[in-house]
Amino acid sequence: MKGGDGDCYYSRRQVHMANVQTEVMSPVKATRRRRNSLQAKRERLFYILVLPWVIGFLAFTLGPMVYSLYLSFTHWDLFSSPRFIGLGNYAQLSGDPLFWQSLRVTSIYSIVSVPLGLIVSLMLAILLNQKVKGLSVFRTILYLPSVVSGVAVSTVFMWVFNPQFGLLNALLGELGVKGPGWLSDPNWALPSLILMSLWGVGGNMIIFLAGLQNIPVSLLEAASLDGATLWRRFWSVTIPILSPSILFNLVLSIINQFQTFTQAYVMTNGGPLHSTLFYVYYLFENAFQYLNMGYAAALGWILFIIILVLTMIVLATSKKWVFYQGE
């Protein structure tokens, strides 16, 4: 993203010039001083307007982050005061099989559901970018699932996945296939939740659709005249132009999928046999059921670092595969 300096009322150079003052006032300098005070006023206004955000950032984000780092070095049950134990929580984590299990579950879920979600949402966006009648109806229908989320959706999908009376096994039954036990089967519970995540790709789809509508028709026509096949046009024109949207969706999907919680809490309680023990679910359990606040803080910091590193890796590689039009 560009900063947009050029759009602003006063450029940096003017700010700088206005700051250089001498003792003797000439008419020109008087104007400058007036401009200087106007600039100062604008700057003050900027800070007044963003003040709520700055206060909120300090009180609800930066402050808690620092506090949580401190807590991660303590043993704390919420009632007595925190007892400093150094790296004790982190040492305990490295030997905690449930911690590794939660990391494994969350990683598998993200590694499968993120690319799968991107592919499905891109496919839907491409379909919605064709010139056929009734598109706005299809767009509404395909976006509808991503409007809803949370407990109600989890409840509905518990019913969809019901082994005996659920939608999926009813459909499979019509085809003469006996469906699996879905959420009640340790081998199928995580795949079930991955399947469910595909239902909510509408947000990515809309971002892709916006990106597709930015592709100049002339470019595709030119490629077509040069004899490029549909497949070739997709890889050489559509994907490069869409790459900023892919980057945006990729980063946000990773961040979101790593924080999956509600499905695990409502639908499976992390089971069966810890097969859906998601990271944030395990963190929540430690914090609010076992009252291991220090341990939970350490879990939180590790998640933060994982997401930070993954985001950095994606952003670093993006220089190689993301193209911005007009560059």
């Binding site: 006063y10 700057e43 998640l303």
Partner: peptide, 29 residues
């Protein structure tokens, strides 16, 4: 619309908070 020293840095901080997992803020908050 407004211009001030430190605006761009501040804007990057705003954007970077989008990447912060709520889980890390849950306990201290």
């Amino acid at each position: 619309r407004l211009e001030a020293r430190g605006k761009n840095v501040l804007f990057y901080i705003v954007l970077s908070t989008m990447m912060l997992p709520y889980a890390v803020l849950m306990v201290p908050q």
